[in-house]
Design a protein around this nucleic acid. Sequence first.
DNA 1: GGCCATTAACCTTTATTAACCTAAAAGAAA
DNA 2: TTTCTTTTAGGTTAATAAAGGTTAATGGCC
Lengths: 229, 229
Amino acid sequence: MTNVKVLYVEDELFLGKIVRESLECRGFEVIMEDDGAKVLDLFKKTNPDICVLDVMLPNKDGFAIADEIRELNEDVPIIFLTAKTQTEDVVKGFTLGGNDYIRKPFSMEELIVRIQNLLRNKSEGTTKISGGATAIGKYTFHLNRQVLAGEKEERKLSYRESELLKLLYENRDKIIDRKDILNLLWGNDSFFNSRNLDVYITKLRSYLKEDTSLEIITIKGIGYRFVTG
Amino acid sequence: MTNVKVLYVEDELFLGKIVRESLECRGFEVIMEDDGAKVLDLFKKTNPDICVLDVMLPNKDGFAIADEIRELNEDVPIIFLTAKTQTEDVVKGFTLGGNDYIRKPFSMEELIVRIQNLLRNKSEGTTKISGGATAIGKYTFHLNRQVLAGEKEERKLSYRESELLKLLYENRDKIIDRKDILNLLWGNDSFFNSRNLDVYITKLRSYLKEDTSLEIITIKGIGYRFVTG
DNA sequence: GGCCATTAACCTTTATTAACCTAAAAGAAA
DNA sequence: TTTCTTTTAGGTTAATAAAGGTTAATGGCC
């Protein structure tokens, strides 16, 4: 599992440094640039998963850059950082069309939430499990409905349970890093929510115990492997 | 299907840029103009599929422009962007006959949805049955009449119920952010009206319970997903 | 008065944190 | 090398906090 690559274009170096560090400490790979004219080349070279563009840049503004990027790639999500001007009304949190706007000053939390939103909605279509039903051992897993149906009973899963099961299933028979799971489901792998994952693993094990051929194996110090028989 | 051409008349350049960017990224071709006096010529030249007119323009206001356009073309849909101070009465007179209006500040999502609606009313799409009616599971939803017809009974929906259902349906099988819903329907996502949404979700769930294949799934901490079977 | 939107009150579910327990490696002493 | 500790990662369960669900009451507006 590779890290999510963020192309971040910002000319305020001090702000840029803070943002970059915060993103990196949450497991993002950050490619930074302060010169608007160089962004397109960098985009081609690095092929990022998401772009964060300051609108106010010395040479070429964020919108112009976005236009260029869109010519190369129609899907990559773009977040614009806009100065607080008269646009207050307009730029009110809408997250559609693969673009998003954040008004400066913004909090790191906000930026991270938006990034995750855009990535989530994008991967919606490309996920390996179809929106319909997937057979997992004796069970049938309806991802969209968040339902795990055994032979006798159906269980409604919460979003986290459902996403974790999906992740395990998509990577079945492979070792998945604990860190990667934490980054994907919780957005970071800090000490605090790391016990959270254990709790959900326990839950899933208990939900899946009707079929003994299904097992979530712990690889101590590394992660898990979901074996499906 | 070639691109949909949108003629967009706006004098606030910064807003215009954002809107244009968002529309283009959704695959629309945007023809922009900031001078009301030049619009009619531009219309003749480009023959757009839909017009979006700011009402407050320096030389000629949006309504006057619309009159001129209507002399040339009776069918092209026109969306007015009106300032929030505008009285509803004034605007309402213009909303008949393929016209619509959106009050500023508006969200891009709202604009896009309106554009799509107006275009769909002209050429019937796959999900539209006829005359603005949409099949949702066993139900038929008459958007412009705000009526949800089940197999046995018909229910009149209120404006909010209707708008929420529309939003859910148009984004079915995708996760919609709670925040986005609040911003679209209530204009903000403050703590206060946030419980309001829950109430309407409950109402819709109850209205839709005749068809068990329809489900509004909660994604706790994020939003909802409307699955339609 | 009737219709809606909103607010309030109270309840349920889900996520997170905490506390305590167990198993696996890694070291040290025999 | 064996065996006995020590350390560390993870497992389990319960408690707490947060988010949302439901229903009823309130209040505004034709």
